[in-house]
Simulated assay, not measured.
Amino acid sequence: MTGVRSLEWLILTRHGESTANVAYAAAHDGLEEIDVPERDADVPLSPAGQKQAAALGRRLAGLPPDERPTAVLASPYTRALETARIALAELPDTPVLQIDERLRDRELGVLDRLTPAGVRARFPAEAARLARLGKFYHRPPGGESWADMALRLRSAYRDLDLDHPGGRVLVVAHDAVVVLTRYIVENRTEQEIMEIEKTPIVNCSISRWRRRGGRLAPVEYNDPSHLPDPLIMAEED
């Protein structure tokens, strides 16, 4: 893998269910825009999301001592920070929580809060560009493509390698971050990662990679077994 070579463990989780997740799940056919009052960075956890975060913390606390995180990095978005803080409260030895803006969710620009129906109705040219370019390379006006996200994540993981050699790092972020980590760590192709992306990342599920033979190898992916009633949410965050 390019960048992350010295980490012993890389552990990723998506934030707990957010109020925006609830709004997207309740959206009816034909709805063009989701009614979320906060800006994306300020969307909080739902009550269910808070319970999921606590369950995540218990799962981490139950790991063998030599597999528990020694450092924790989180997206600056409220739903990720809330998840990290609730989960860390369950650990016997609480690592210091660090914020890294490179772990934030994908920027959607003018398409923010729009459903697929809303994109087709309000930005038909962008809908056509998306269909032509594909999800991985389409960059909406004012937003990012998946490839753009991969660039900033590679930078973040290179710094993890420098700052935590031999460490066990927990990253609390977003579904696109979890999926793109497979793209980076496992040297996947565009076609492979877009196929993987079709399976939604469960809120507060666990994905882990362990260093073997000089590189990080997958141990588990999108595992929700620690959650009492795992909810697979829509891809919108």
Rank of each mutant, 00 (worst) to 15 (best):
23 A>K: 05
23 A>M: 04
24 Y>T: 04
24 Y>I: 06
24 Y>A: 08
24 Y>C: 03
25 A>D: 02
25 A>Y: 00
25 A>R: 04
26 A>Y: 08
26 A>Q: 11
26 A>T: 07
26 A>S: 13
27 A>I: 01
27 A>S: 11
27 A>T: 02
27 A>Q: 01
27 A>Y: 00
27 A>R: 02
28 H>Y: 03
29 D>M: 03
30 G>N: 08
30 G>F: 06
30 G>V: 06
31 L>S: 09
31 L>P: 04
31 L>D: 13
32 E>D: 00
32 E>R: 00
33 E>A: 08
33 E>I: 06
34 I>E: 00
34 I>S: 00
34 I>W: 00
35 D>K: 12
35 D>E: 13
36 V>Q: 07
36 V>N: 01
37 P>M: 10
38 E>S: 05
38 E>C: 03
38 E>L: 07
38 E>D: 12
39 R>P: 09
40 D>M: 04
41 A>C: 11
41 A>G: 10
42 D>N: 11
43 V>G: 03
44 P>G: 14
44 P>I: 13
44 P>C: 13
45 L>A: 01
45 L>F: 00
46 S>G: 13
46 S>T: 13
46 S>C: 09
46 S>Y: 03
47 P>T: 09
47 P>M: 04
47 P>D: 12
48 A>Y: 01
49 G>F: 15
49 G>M: 15
50 Q>R: 15
50 Q>V: 15
50 Q>T: 14
50 Q>S: 15
50 Q>H: 13
50 Q>Y: 11
51 K>E: 15
51 K>G: 15
52 Q>V: 02
52 Q>H: 12
53 A>Q: 07
53 A>Y: 01
53 A>R: 04
53 A>N: 04
53 A>F: 02
54 A>F: 09
54 A>E: 14
54 A>H: 12
55 A>F: 06
55 A>P: 05
56 L>G: 13
56 L>C: 14
57 G>M: 15
57 G>Y: 14
57 G>H: 14
57 G>T: 13
57 G>N: 14
58 R>E: 15
58 R>V: 11
59 R>I: 09
59 R>K: 15
59 R>S: 14
60 L>M: 11
60 L>E: 11
62 G>Y: 11
62 G>C: 10
63 L>H: 12
63 L>I: 10
63 L>K: 10
64 P>M: 09
64 P>K: 07
66 D>E: 14
66 D>K: 05
66 D>V: 04
67 E>R: 11
68 R>V: 08
68 R>K: 10
68 R>P: 04
69 P>C: 10
69 P>K: 07
69 P>D: 09
69 P>G: 09
70 T>W: 08
71 A>S: 08
72 V>M: 03
73 L>I: 04
74 A>S: 12
75 S>C: 06
75 S>D: 07
75 S>G: 08
76 P>A: 02
76 P>Q: 03
77 Y>S: 05
77 Y>C: 07
77 Y>F: 13
77 Y>L: 07
77 Y>K: 05
78 T>I: 06
78 T>F: 05
78 T>R: 12
78 T>E: 08
78 T>C: 05
79 R>S: 05
79 R>D: 01
79 R>H: 06
79 R>G: 03
80 A>F: 05
80 A>K: 02
81 L>D: 06
82 E>Q: 15
82 E>S: 11
82 E>F: 10
82 E>V: 10
83 T>Q: 01
83 T>N: 00
83 T>E: 00
83 T>G: 01
83 T>W: 01
83 T>L: 00
